[in-house]
């Protein structure tokens, strides 16, 4: 294991031992190994440096490396926990963990809040929601009249912004999501429950047997 691990560490900066990542997340050691197969494929798609850059992330999401999307950018920024402009394997596993079906709603609610708090002010502000709404309309090639956009924002903030100060804080967000649970659907990836089947090739590289026995 030692030789294998040092080789992996050299090729994949920031690579952490699967057993450690497993202990901090909802993933088993085998599932962390499976995620490493996915990580290797994404991180080697443009530059084979063992790290995922933004272009590689977009390529994996859209199968198109040139596609710019503010939501994908925001997700990338949240995955890039160390703010290095790249995602290492530890970042990747810890961020994906939030999307695991067994992770608490509390963690998912918090991640979604940070996702939409694009400027990192601690509030989801109306101008941020408007910006995201317009981006979504562009992405889906939908056209809405300005007054319809404003009406949607009015309605949303009437429902979510309990103290009507024009911004949504974390407690208002928790309350709003509890009344609109479908908003959290994007925060759970059923794939993560069955990842060793999705990426069976990990079995050939697995250290699980050595660690488990």
């Amino acid at each position: 294991m030692g030789r294998f691990q040092s080789k992996v560490t050299r090729q994949y900066p920031g690579h952490e031992v699967p057993i450690v990542l497993s202990s901090e997340t909802a993933f088993s050691v085998g599932e962390v190994e499976a995620l490493f197969e996915l990580f290797k494929s994404i991180s080697g798609s443009v530059i084979d440096d063992g790290l995922i850059n933004k272009e590689e992330f977009q390529l994996a999401l859209f199968k198109n490396r040139k596609k710019e999307n503010i939501f994908a950018n925001r997700i990338f920024d949240l995955f890039d926990a160390k703010k290095k402009g790249v995602i290492d394997f530890g970042d990747f596993v810890r961020a994906l963990n939030v999307f695991h079906p067994n992770v608490s709603q509390e963690d998912k609610i918090d991640f979604a809040f940070r996702l939409y708090d694009m400027d990192g002010t601690g509030f989801i502000e109306r101008n941020e929601v408007k910006q995201m709404l317009i981006a979504l309309l562009c992405e889906s090639e939908m056209k809405l009249a300005d007054e319809t956009i404003e009406a949607i924002l009015d309605k949303t903030f009437l429902d979510a912004d309990m103290n009507q100060d024009g911004k949504i804080d974390i407690s208002e967000w928790k309350n709003f999501v509890s009344r609109n649970p479908s908003l959290l659907k994007i925060m759970t990836l059923p794939y993560l429950r069955d990842i060793t089947t999705t990426f069976p090739s990990f079995i050939f590289h697995s250290e699980v047997d050595e660690i488990a026995t």
Binding site: L61, F71, A72, I186
Partner: peptide
């Protein structure tokens, strides 16, 4: 068409950029 009574976050959450499931599609 999108009704004005729709919740902004419901709309936003339909973005392809937020659908991480596509990371797992080869």
């Amino acid at each position: 068409s999108v009704p004005a009574t729709m919740n902004a976050f419901e709309l936003i959450s339909t973005s392809q950029g937020l659908n991480l499931g596509s990371l797992f599609e080869k």
